[in-house]
Each structure stands twice: as structure tokens, then as C-alpha cells.
Simulated assay, not measured.
Amino acid sequence: AFPFVFCCPAMPFEDSRILLVVCYSIVFALGLPANCFTTWLTFVQIQKKNVLAIYIFGLSLCELMYLSTLPLWAIYVQNKHRWEMGSMACKLTGYIFFCNIYISILLLCCISIDRYVAVVYALETKGKRQQRTAIFITFILFSIVLVIHCPVFILQDGEQTSNRTTCFETLPLNLKLAYFGLARFLIGFAIPCTVLIFTNYRIFQSTEISSSLGKRQKAKVKYLAIAIITIFLICFAPYHLVLLIRSINFLLHQKDSCSFEHDIYSTSAAFLCLSTANSVADPIIYVLASEHARKDFYTSLTKWRYQSSINTSLKLKNSKESQEAAQTSENQHFTTLSNEQ
């Protein structure tokens, strides 16, 4: 099917092994509880008819799905990039990885667009932003990305044979993957990035000229917009730039791309870590930066502390009563013995 089907020998897997395993472990340890907490907080906000919470809830579920695969990737890397869990497990894990990246990117765009509409066109859209619309858009995005990546299950990259032990690490690329890489860069990164920068810039511009917002509120909007763009660029730009460079290099030098793949592999692995870190960054930005979410968090924390203090008091009281009852029983026992004597 392809003019060149061969594997690059002696890739420097060991150079990035510790970095990848440590990164996957840290992201899993921090991201799992953070996204679980985010899912719960956004669910509370959904019940309060918050439209933005729909997108954040979908984003959190997507991140949790991806985080569940990180231990498998860590085992794979630690095992010198030998996948020993079967072809179907490889394909399913790869499918979740690819889908997570682009569902996350598209939902981040939806969040920025929703904020842009709510801030820049506040009067025109008052009462028109509905949860049903957000649910429909989220469902469509999930469906499109899931369907587009279905070919993952028929690609040879996921097949485990005597000649192939890696999982979705075709080195060098082939023509289909090279063109797919170009499409992923353009549609999955460049266009969403443009949307993200434009909407957040307009949000910042609109709040700057607003007379109804104070300096503190303007500063909050400004720093949040900067944080959103910065996190997006740090997490996704390096990975997609390497993807673009690898695709172009293969198309220009199909017969001699192994040396380039060898040289760029460690850099590509490091940038892959950055894309993984997005699972930790999203909850911090979109939930803790929300006034309503913070209030729910503090309310929950206060209730938890109050309940904990009550439980502690009850335990101490019950313990004290038990000790007093035991002491009384013991005294009665000694009194009975004395009388019998």
C-alpha cells in the first residue's frame, strides 16, 4: 500500500524513558482527583442552569477517560516501548489518546466562544444562551471526533506481531500518516488556535472599555484570557509543530527520513509530555477561575469541616461515654465481689 514500509532502527527510546514515566505518573496523580472534583463542581453548576458548565463537564469527562490510559502508557514506556497487552488494548488506548487531544481543543474553543458571546454581546444574547444548545454542540463535537478517529482500529500501527511491538509509533511515517498529520495540524490546531486567540482578545478588549467593571474585575478577565491562551499554546503548539515538521520532512525526503526521525524523537517525546499536562491545567483554569465554582468549593469545604468536627465530637463523646460505662460496670463488679466476701 505504501512505497516505503520499514522501521527506523535503534531509536533513542531510553533517552526519554524517565521523563515520560515521571510525567505520566505526576499527571495521573494530580489530574485524576482534580478532574473528578471538577466533574462534581460542574455537575452542581449544571443543575443551576449554568451554560458554560456543560462544556467544562464534557471536558472533564474527556480528561478522565484519557487519564485512565496513562498507567498503560507508563508501563509501555518503562518496558522499552514494547506493548504486551494485545492489539485491541493498543488500538483502544491510542484511540482514546487521539480523541482526547481534539475533543479537548474543540471544547476549549467552545468555552472561549461562549465567554466571548456572553461578554461582547451580553445584551443581545441575554436569555438566549441555553443549556440545550450547549449539550447539542458538545454531543456533535464528541461524535465527529470519535467517528473521524475510527480508522485507528484498522491501522497497522496498532497491530501486535512478531515484527511490530510498538504501539502507534510508526517510524518513519508513511504517506497516509503524513497527510493525516498535515490535516491534524491545520484543522485540529491552527484553526482552533486562531479562534481561541481572537475570542479571548475580543473579550479582553470589550472589558477594557467597559465602564461597569472595576479594575479588579478587568484584571481578572485579562489574566484569565492570557492564561487560557498560554496554556493552550504550551500544551498543544509544540506537539503539533513537531507533527507538522515530521509530515513535511517525510513528504520531501521519503527515502531518507530515518536520520531525521532519530534526531527529533527525544524532542517529540518531551512535547508529548506537554500535551499530557493539559489534563492538569484545565481544571485549574476553568473551574477555580470561576466565581461560582469557588463559592461552591468553599461551601463544600465549610460543610465538610463542619461535618468532620461534628463527627469528631460525637466520636469523643461516645468514647467518653463508653469509658464511663466501662468504669461504672467495673465498679459495680468490684462492689459485688466485696459484698460476697
Rank of each mutant, 00 (worst) to 15 (best):
Y298E: 09
V221L: 10
A178T: 06
C235Y: 03
Q327T: 10
Q160D: 06
A227Q: 03
F180Y: 09
E169A: 04
S210W: 03
L173S: 10
V152F: 08
A325E: 14
A289T: 07
E324T: 14
I154Q: 05
Q160L: 13
Y239G: 03
F168W: 03
E324C: 09
L19E: 14
L67N: 08
L272I: 09
A53Y: 00
L70D: 04
F139N: 12
V280F: 08
V51N: 07
L224Y: 13
T335P: 00
L301K: 03
S290L: 13
N50V: 06
I187R: 01
F153C: 04
T199Q: 08
Y306G: 15
G188E: 05
S268T: 10
E169H: 01
E159G: 04
I103W: 07
F260D: 09
G188A: 05
E291M: 05
C36P: 00
A227W: 04
E63P: 00
A190H: 03
F4Y: 15
A118M: 14
I229H: 04
R17L: 11
I231S: 15
S104C: 08
A293T: 04
C273H: 03
F37N: 02
H262G: 05
R216P: 03
I135K: 12
F142P: 00
S279A: 15
Y298A: 13
Y121L: 11
F142M: 11
L19G: 07
V147S: 11
S322Y: 15
A10C: 05
T328I: 11
P71K: 05
Y55V: 14
I113H: 08
E261P: 00
G158D: 06
C273N: 08
L146E: 08
V117R: 13
F198D: 06
F185Q: 05
L108C: 15
C90M: 05
G214A: 07
A118E: 15
T161D: 03
G214E: 10
L274C: 03
K222E: 13
S275Y: 04
L177W: 08
Y102I: 00
D15R: 05
I187Q: 01
T328M: 10
E124R: 10
T161F: 04
I105P: 04
T165E: 06
V280D: 04
Q205W: 12
V27D: 06
E169F: 06
A219M: 12
R129C: 02
T93W: 04
C23S: 15
S112I: 09
E84I: 13
E169Y: 01
W40K: 13
P238F: 12
R129W: 02
F232T: 08
C62Y: 06
Q307M: 08
L146D: 11
A34I: 01
L196A: 06
E63Y: 08
Q130W: 07
V242S: 05
D282M: 14
H253S: 07
F4R: 11
V119T: 15
N79Y: 01
I111N: 07
N200P: 03
L274V: 03
T312P: 01
I248S: 07
R202K: 14
C90K: 02
F189V: 02
Q254H: 02
L106P: 00
K222W: 14
V120N: 08
R115L: 09
V280T: 06
R305F: 09
V242T: 11
L146Q: 12
L173V: 05
C258T: 04
R294T: 12
V195C: 12
H81S: 10
Y55K: 09
Q254W: 01
S211H: 09
T93N: 09
D263V: 02
L67T: 02
I75S: 15
